[in-house]
Design a protein around this nucleic acid. Structure first.
Length: 298
DNA sequence: CTCGATCCCTGGACGC
DNA sequence: TGCGTCCAGGGATCGA
């Protein structure tokens, strides 16, 4: 499941491997995950991949027309979201195509840039000019670029649960389920805690551990769970450093309490019930409190 | 604004 | 060995 560190890893690999390559032609398979397939077929051939960037969980292949005609000088880019199971990597033509290969771009150096995505939860879009800018503006701050005041401003008055805020790409771009859970565990914050209920110390802690965890995960080329591989076909190593994600039933590394899995914001959330104290409900009636206590101890 | 529910899709886990 | 069933999960969408 590619999140910020995995996408960063792939983007860096692609930058090294295919920056400067001209796209000669394109072949599409299934296209239900592509915004406008005809635009790709019409516009990509003859353009050069200037550079590959990460934008949240998207990769941004910045493009330039080789024979720029009048009026064809505006910014253009191919946005690629890997969804759950997407991969984008250059391959020699001689390498057999994997099942679920849906986009193949022939490059000037003879290789093919192949997009493979069994579940097709990914997304691909060719965008230029104003629509491109608008698309990018939909998203929130990059957690590695935001400073502390901006981080705090995006969370502190929000009535949503902190887990939901971290996963919301219009709040922060790039954070997914693994790194949200790992950060909340490290900062000792319960995933269901409301943003507005976090104090300044907690917000500062969360900001710092989120950056630390993302940076370390990038250094280790991301987490390879299920079948994530980087552009060189190498797995990441950060999954060996997970402290809570996927560890329900196992013991907390800090306090030995059994890690639990609950659903928050519609997603599996792993946490330590001891280190990450459940939010205390406000203004509960005495009867409600008693009922809850009985349920806990009974 | 915020929530939960539902859908998309396939492979892997599991039960028999 | 081979079914059928259930589930994960990022994001879009819709109704409450």
């Amino acid at each position: 499941m590619p999140e910020l560190p995995e996408v960063e890893t792939v983007a860096r690999g692609l930058q090294r491997e295919i920056a400067g390559q001209e796209i000669l032609s394109i072949t599409l398979g299934k296209t239900d995950f592509i915004d406008n397939p005809e635009a790709l077929e019409r516009e990509l051939p003859g353009r050069t991949i200037v550079r590959v960037e990460r934008y949240g969980k998207f990769m941004l292949l910045r493009l330039r027309a080789n024979h720029a005609t009048y009026g064809d000088t505006e910014e253009s880019a191919l946005l690629v979201h890997l969804g759950m199971t997407g991969s984008l990597a250059p391959q020699a033509v001689s390498v057999p195509q994997r099942k679920h290969t849906h986009v193949v771009m022939q490059l000037a150096d003879g290789r093919e840039l192949r997009y493979v995505d069994p579940r097709r939860f990914g997304r691909m879009a060719y965008l230029t000019g104003e629509p491109l800018l608008q698309e990018l503006q939909r998203f929130g701050a990059d957690p590695l670029e935001a400073d502390l005041p901006e981080f705090i401003a995006r969370v502190q008055y929000r009535k949503s649960r902190i887990k939901a805020l971290l996963l919301d790409q219009t709040v922060f771009r790039g954070v997914g389920n693994i790194y949200a859970d790992e950060s909340l565990w490290k900062a000792r914050i319960h995933p269901a805690q409301l943003g507005s209920r976090l104090n300044r110390r907690q917000l500062k802690e969360l900001y710092e551990v989120l950056q630390t965890i993302l940076k370390k995960a990038i250094l280790l080329r991301g987490s390879s769970i299920s079948d994530f591989l980087d552009a060189d076909g190498e797995p990441g190593e950060y999954q060996q450093h997970h402290r809570v994600y996927g560890r329900d039933g196992k013991r907390c590394f800090r306090c030995q309490t059994i890690i639990r899995r609950i659903i928050v914001a519609g997603r599996s959330s792993y946490f330590c019930p001891n280190c990450q104290q459940a939010p205390r409900a406000r203004k509960k009636t005495r009867a409600t409190k008693l009922r809850k206590q009985r349920g806990r101890t009974g």
